[in-house]
Design a protein around this nucleic acid. Structure first.
Length: 931
RNA sequence: GCCUCGAUGGUGGAAUCGGUAGACACGCAGGACUUAAAAUCCUGUAAUCAUUGCGAUUGUGCGGGUUCAAGUCCCGCUCGAGGUACCA
């Protein structure tokens, strides 16, 4: 009987839906397993064949675990807020909610066709009020907590206030934006506004001035990649650095715990490494330098405390607060000009800049160790955001300082014996120290340690660990995001009462910034908070007594995706983000699958979010993602036709060099095995209607290249089309067959026939003509061996996420079975195949007489006794080169093997006229004769 | 620049511990079935030489090394992909 995949797949997808086959609930009698795919953003283009790769892999794993007896949580939902929908709204006026709803419907339809075992009852969408209520709620908690650096834990802000009331800042251990000093009396004397300002210095969600790329022409803030050479990519308006009050999250407070957590999870080394680089821990020292003629000292951070004797100048970031203090009258104009120039450069440009620039401030600092006076310069190569925004320059041993010293003619003092610094600096942390008084003769490592001790003892500074990671800016001047549950009471940011959440996103008429440069929410007319009525009211009622304006910003993309894995555990809970029961049962994600693009964004923010909730005792696991696998990208395979320049004549690949041709991308969907469907090409576009072709052997052969899968390359392959033509099971199997999950590889539809044929052949085993029939005969030894070998291999492969080799193993198994139709062999195979190709497996399983889903068919176990070989085929090699094979009993001893091999006539032929010097016998493996 | 990963036939890839390189599949070529096509099945398929057969040599990006034995380990390099800091 024909394998009618369309009918089978439709039938089972409906049954699964009706019978809620994939619905999952807490079941304390079963071990749990949580398998999660990274949250997709539902883009307007729909899914292409690359997207489901990870979903298929995780689906196989989830189904496998279920068959092994686990209670598997495998949910799906949408990261539904985002810029594309908003930009589409600006262009067309269509509400982003409508666009998003349509895109989600399209995604769902596409996903459903592939037969995933998602529990759709747990679906979440970040743009739904029931979901973002908890995003807003978490934000309020972060606002109401600070980070205790001694306890290494978030604590209620009330505890901090109590401390300030009794001790001021004395003895305070808190993560902070800047170091403040005041007494309890001073604190008590502060008014509300001042107190709010001070507390912002400690809150985990806080408001502070940050530098942004401000584009006055567009009236908005731009991301780094929306700016190019000081102009906005969109519109080409000038962009400048501007200070703006923005919400931020104090993720830097969690730097060390983020780092420590990496030791406890099963992620790839490369991913861990990139997170370590992002966190950027460096051990060093803070050193104070006196400024000549002033009370004020400047503090710098260095990892090379050993180089203090080689400091020949100081450099400040242009934004540094010290700039104002050290700039002299004479240098005032020059400094001002320089800072003005730097302002128009983005951080990215400043970092990419190779040309050295800078200006002298006019002041001098005093080296605390030598007492020498050294000039203070200002340069963009020092970044305000790292360390203290000021450095001590050691030109002999830092290439950036070196370039600066060369350009401005500043002295260079070598500090390492034998280091030649006439052409370039010696940056390596190795060698013997010289020119450094009490450090002379030590290795660099020893000198660093000794210098640190010295700095501490002499009180000129302190040992310190610095982190590169910066706090996350949490405000966006956009419409399509979560609104902040914040109103401004006499200008003081105040949280909405928690029981009034969610604060719903208002409707607005225009998605652009307002004329006065406010974010889109500035267009909302009902966007004020009435404290007494506890509700959102018309803006016209703002009186600054009981009615106050609401925040006009929205939250960024990572807000909604930071705790979604927790929400899946308990998606309909109205009283908490996740119930204690659900959290304690499902704990953390056991397998997390997604792309590398989230390596440093989402995977840092969601971990901080989780650690914060952990500190509050709301979740029981500190690390949310135990094992993580990055799936590779599926690249496109583009096809080209070759047009003779200036004509409408196309020549086949093999002939193109005889003409002056131009390669043109052609839709891969009208090309098969690199042969163009000429008629389809003529109909593809009016411009090719009258195209002429020069063929090779009656065919038009196309050229090809591997490129990114994108519309503009005409190489997008839609999974719907594949499902239509070959079925979802074939698509699933082929995606896995392409290669290792974590590797990038090109999609080429032509290979799909192999796996499709496999399924057809497998199907055929169960039928005799049109009737379903399996034999009840006992299996032979060979058949059992093949079966059990396959059971073993598939289980191991799934555990190692090596799905491509599983597919091969199935094919080998089928080839070896040679048309076997015995139930005792076929039935376990159906069970093994079920995670990979669930539809055909369900159909065959039910035809075999089962009434329950194959999803619950227990995973078969293999018996070692069937796998034992009685003999081994030994490759016999001479000097490492295999010459022939010898079949020998498996239990033959080393000595016997040696004797048998030497006695063999073929051996004698190979060794004729040579002396045998050595024989290596590896039992069960190989024999090598050296002669 | 730095970090990470990678490079194996015409193509995707396999080789789990250093032990027969190229499993499995695509494609291609030849054959069977068919009036024909499709579908299906069978055979061959790393390269070079030899070919009636036996075979021989080379071969996993390049150059070295360790080893009885290297795609796999070590040193040096080339190219490609991804990430990324003028981070003091």
């Amino acid at each position: 009987m024909e394998y009618n995949f369309n009918e089978i797949e439709k039938k089972w997808q409906e049954k699964w839906r009706e019978q809620k086959t994939y619905h999952v609930e807490i079941d304390k009698n079963k071990k749990k397993c949580y398998v999660l795919d990274m949250f997709p953003y539902p883009s307007g283009a729909g899914l292409h064949v690359g997207h489901p790769l990870g979903y298929i892999a995780s689906d196989i794993y989830a189904r496998y675990k279920r068959q092994c007896g686990y209670n598997v949580l495998h949910p799906m939902g949408y990261d539904a807020y985002g810029l594309p929908a908003e930009q589409y709204a600006i262009k067309t006026g269509q509400h982003p909610a409508v666009t998003t709803r349509n895109n989600i419907a399209r995604y769902r339809e596409q996903l459903d066709k592939i037969g995933f075992c998602f529990d759709w009852d747990r679906e979440v969408k970040t743009c739904e009020p029931g979901y973002y209520k908890w995003t807003q709620w978490a934000f309020i908690q972060m606002f109401n907590h600070y980070y205790d650096t001694k306890e290494q834990k978030a604590q209620p802000i009330a505890k901090l206030i109590a401390h300030l009331e009794t001790n001021g800042t004395e003895g305070l251990d808190a993560a902070q934006t800047k170091e403040l000093h005041f007494s309890a009396e001073e604190w008590k004397g502060y008014d509300e506004a001042k107190k709010s300002e001070v507390l912002m210095n400690y809150r985990i969600a806080y408001k502070a001035d940050t530098m942004v790329n401000w584009c006055p022409g567009l009236g908005t803030v731009l991301a780094n990649d929306e700016v190019s050479e000081g102009l906005s990519v969109r519109g080409g308006f000038p962009v400048e650095q501007k200070k703006m009050s923005q919400w931020s999250l104090r993720v830097s407070a969690y730097a060390q715990r983020l780092l420590d957590g990496l030791e406890t999870v099963d992620w790839t080394e490369s991913l861990k490494e990139s997170q370590r680089n992002w966190i950027g821990r460096s051990e060093g020292a803070e050193v104070r330098f006196k400024i000549k003629g002033q009370e004020e000292e400047m503090v710098i951070f260095t990892t090379r405390a050993d180089t203090l004797f080689g400091v020949t100048f100081m450099v400040l970031a242009p934004e540094s607060a010290y700039v104002e203090k050290v700039t002299t009258k004479e240098q005032g104009k020059e400094v001002e000009n320089y800072i003005d120039w730097v302002k128009h450069r983005t951080e990215r440009e400043r970092m990419a800049e190779k040309k050295v620039s800078g200006v002298f401030s006019g002041s001098y600092a005093v080296n605390p160790i030598t007492g020498k006076e050294i000039p203070i310069w200002i340069s963009e190569y020092v970044l305000a955001g790292y360390g203290t925004g000021a450095i001590m320059a050691v030109p002999a041993h830092d290439s950036r300082d070196y370039a600066f010293a060369k350009k401005f003619g500043l002295p260079i003092i070598p500090l390492i014996e034998g280091a030649d610094v006439s052409e370039q600096s010696f940056d390596a942390k190795e060698g013997i120290v010289c020119n450094s008084d009490f450090l002379n003769g030590l290795t660099v490592k020893e000198a660093i340690a000794k210098a640190k001790v010295y700095i501490k003892e002499k009180g000129i500074g302190q040992v310190k660990v610095n982190y590169r990671i910066r706090d996350a800016i949490f405000s966006r001047q956009r419409y399509w995001g979560e609104p902040f549950p914040v109103y401004y009471k006499h200008g003081i940011p105040t949280m909405l009462p928690e029981d009034k959440l969610p604060l719903q996103l208002p409707e607005i008429s225009n998605y652009l910034p307002t004329e006065t440069g406010e974010p889109p929410l500035g267009h909302a007319t009902k966007w004020a908070w009435d404290e007494q009525k506890r509700e959102v009211v018309e803006n016209s009622r703002i009186d600054d007594e009981t009615v106050f304006p609401l925040d006009l910003n929205t939250m960024p993309g990572f807000a909604g995706s930071s705790a979604y894995y927790l929400r899946y555990m308990d998606p309909h809970n109205d009283t908490s983000l996740v119930s204690k029961e659900a959290d304690e049962y499902w704990k953390a994600v056991d397998l997390y699958l997604g792309g590398t693009e989230h390596a440093t964004g989402h995977l840092i923010y969601s971990k901080v979010w989780n650690k914060f909730l952990y500190d509050l005792g709301l979740v029981c696991e500190e690390e949310p993602f135990k094992k993580l696998i990055n799936q590779g990208m599926i690249q496109g395979r583009s096809n080209f036709v070759y047009r003779v320049k200036g004509t409408n004549r196309f020549v086949s690949l093999g002939l193109k060099d005889q003409y002056d041709t131009q390669a043109i991308h052609v839709d891969v969907n009208i090309v098969e095995n690199d042969v163009l469907d000429v008629e389809a090409f003529r109909n593809w576009s009016p411009e090719y209607k009258d195209a002429e072709f020069e063929l090779e052997n009656g065919k038009y052969v196309c050229g090809w290249a591997v490129e990114k899968m994108s519309k503009s390359m005409y190489n997008v392959v839609n999974p719907d089309d594949i499902v239509e033509r070959y079925g979802a099971d074939t698509l699933r199997l082929y995606e896995m067959f392409l290669g290792p999950i974590e590797q990038s590889k090109p999609w080429d539809t032509k290979g799909i026939d192999g796996v499709h044929r496999f399924l057809k052949k497998f199907w055929g085993l169960f039928f005799e003509g049109d009737t379903f029939r399996v034999s009840e005969e006992e299996a032979t030894k060979e058949e059992l061996k093949t079966l059990h070998k396959t059971i073993k291999k598939i289980g191991e492969d799934i555990e190692h996420f090596s799905f491509n080799t599983s597919v091969s193993a199935f094919m080998i198994c089928l080839n070896e079975l040679k048309g076997c139709d015995k139930r005792s062999v076929l039935e376990p195979l159906v069970v093994l195949l079920a995670p990979f190709v669930p539809h055909i497996a369900e159909e065959l399983w039910s035809r075999l007489g089962h009434t329950t889903s194959v999803c619950d068919a227990p995973w078969p176990s293999y018996k070692e006794e069937y796998l034992k070989e009685s003999s081994v085929r030994y490759p016999i090699s001479f000097n490492g080169k295999v010459r022939f094979n010898l079949e020998l009993p498996a239990d033959m001893s080393r000595e016997e093997i040696e004797k048998t091999v030497l006695a063999d006539s073929q051996t004698q032929k190979q060794t004729e006229g040579k002396t045998i010097r050595k024989i290596i016998v590896v039992p069960g493996r190989i024999v090598n004769i050296v002669c």
